[in-house]
Design a protein around this nucleic acid. Sequence first.
DNA 1: AATGGATATGGTATCGGTACCATATGGTAC
DNA 2: GTACCATATGGTACCGATACCATATCCATT
Lengths: 342, 342
Amino acid sequence: MVTIRDVAKRAGVAPITVSRVINKTGYVSDETRERVETAIAELHYIPNSLSQSLRFKKTNTLALIVSDITNPFWTTVTRGVEDASSEDDLSVILCNTDEQQDKLESYVNLLLQRQTDGFLLVPISRDSGLIQRIQRRGVPVVVLDRPVPGSGADSVYGDSEGGAYALVRYLLDLGHRRIGLLTGPLKIATSERRLKGYQRALTEFGIPADPGLILAGEFKQTSGYEMVQRMLRTVNPLPTALFAANNLIAVGAMQALHEYGARVPDDISLVTFDDLPLFLGAPFLTLAAQAPYELGWTAAKRLIAHLKGEADDAPKDIVLPVQLMIRASSAPPRREERIMQS
Amino acid sequence: MVTIRDVAKRAGVAPITVSRVINKTGYVSDETRERVETAIAELHYIPNSLSQSLRFKKTNTLALIVSDITNPFWTTVTRGVEDASSEDDLSVILCNTDEQQDKLESYVNLLLQRQTDGFLLVPISRDSGLIQRIQRRGVPVVVLDRPVPGSGADSVYGDSEGGAYALVRYLLDLGHRRIGLLTGPLKIATSERRLKGYQRALTEFGIPADPGLILAGEFKQTSGYEMVQRMLRTVNPLPTALFAANNLIAVGAMQALHEYGARVPDDISLVTFDDLPLFLGAPFLTLAAQAPYELGWTAAKRLIAHLKGEADDAPKDIVLPVQLMIRASSAPPRREERIMQS
DNA sequence: AATGGATATGGTATCGGTACCATATGGTAC
DNA sequence: GTACCATATGGTACCGATACCATATCCATT
């Protein structure tokens, strides 16, 4: 391995002088600088950032731990994080938990050992222990997408409850009265808040909750598929509209409905959260759009502010607005159903 | 920050003794071990792996640089890599290039500075310079999915040419004579080999190549969509079958065909490479299935063999077989077309 | 009693890079 | 002429953990 001492020897200077050339600190004469640069080039020297990090006590690295990297929502969040981080020359280590707590914990341990400067993470439960453990080491954390009350960390997330309320409210205004909910694990704040928004809208319309119309699975395509199948088997009368709590659930739901022979929106309306690029041709699904890029960007900027000591101490929740996008997957219920149910 | 010295002081021993307890090396009495372990627990000490890596001259870290993390093919490869690596207590840093050469290069530079022990990478062009640069530093590289001749690195990839040949041959046997190809960038080996397999099958049947039937775009859904639209506009007579060179292109193609009103396989057959989990309900697409998990696993094992010095020096190409999965998206051409063209 | 091996622990140097302080030269101000 | 500052370069220690060698004790063997 080529070290700074090898370069120094070749250029006939002390190692510290090479360091000055590399980091553009202190005084170096033009002539010396040139000699050093030549030596660097000739030896193909690149500095060892392990020793730099050891010395500086920082690694210029952020961890971004997401729950499902195959969901374009999270890839877009990642892009936001990377763009914000690169402005401060920070690199981002991306980790994927697949919603598994043990994976989350082993990544956190690994990253702490590696002296990661800060964490952006998507929690899997509402347990704040892990997050507090990171913070107690003096490493700042910003929680993404799913607030964890009592964690003492900043969090950045979309207005799930408001978005869910708006979607369901919109379905109610169209005349739907039996609206099914396909949501994710209830231990996840997002699932629970979307359920809350759903319930609030129904309550406002004086519609009693029907537990058979509420299914909680996972935020996955297969789960959406299975939940619709189960609902089609067990619920009677069938709902006239479905609210899938995320985009992948919606894709699975569409497949199950398609196989069943139900047309969207003619036979059943379908609304969801978060866009998918070009899913089924032209934009089709009515949905509440969060701003994933902004979410990542905002969270990263917030974390960087902590790293620079520019952030106030009080933990702060940043709630990003969601936008209702009305598209082709939602329509009024069919006449006979409207009559039957009213 | 809690260091090994803090622990040593609290336990009343020398730092090296703490090190022995942590790494279970050398002799330590039970009584001392207990005192040290208590101190570690009380101080919540975790070792700083930067300094360990600096000392050991290895980081126990592999880099996995893929081209498109949103494609389930690559997530499955990643799982294979992670499983193989964890058997040797190596951790994996996942990087996503989005098929951009500059991203690839900046990741490689960063990871070299961080003393990554080995690279698994998906090249973007057939240029071997970057790969050679890594190897000249003594860091082993295994190339994934896309062989780079002359790079001097091992490569592990599926039999693209054979798979493409089998698919097109199968379409020809069904009676198709006008078969369109929607492939990726031709600078990528995979695209080019699938083109070769396609051409070989056609040649065997004495069918002259029609350049209008061959489109090269990107390995993306949007690109598949656009290529089909372009083909529908510009080609006459239309092909009776399409070979999409990867799964995302196939999804985009299906969307475009659906919008156009063409049914698969009644109006046009569609075959592709690589599965997608649950895409459009039950398995539907006829395809050549590579084994992504095995690909990742094999490549990682190969890289680990290099790290342990157990691998022979001669660069080795490992070609994994692909499996033809005949499903519902392919059928004989319609009668009138069969007659017209023969 | 002397030897030797197993057990147990510590001092010092080192990995690669840089902070801090020291040193040396040249030019400018008075 | 001297005081002072800007410029230019180097020596040494240090970041945190561990390899290597040294030291010390104890018990078994001859």
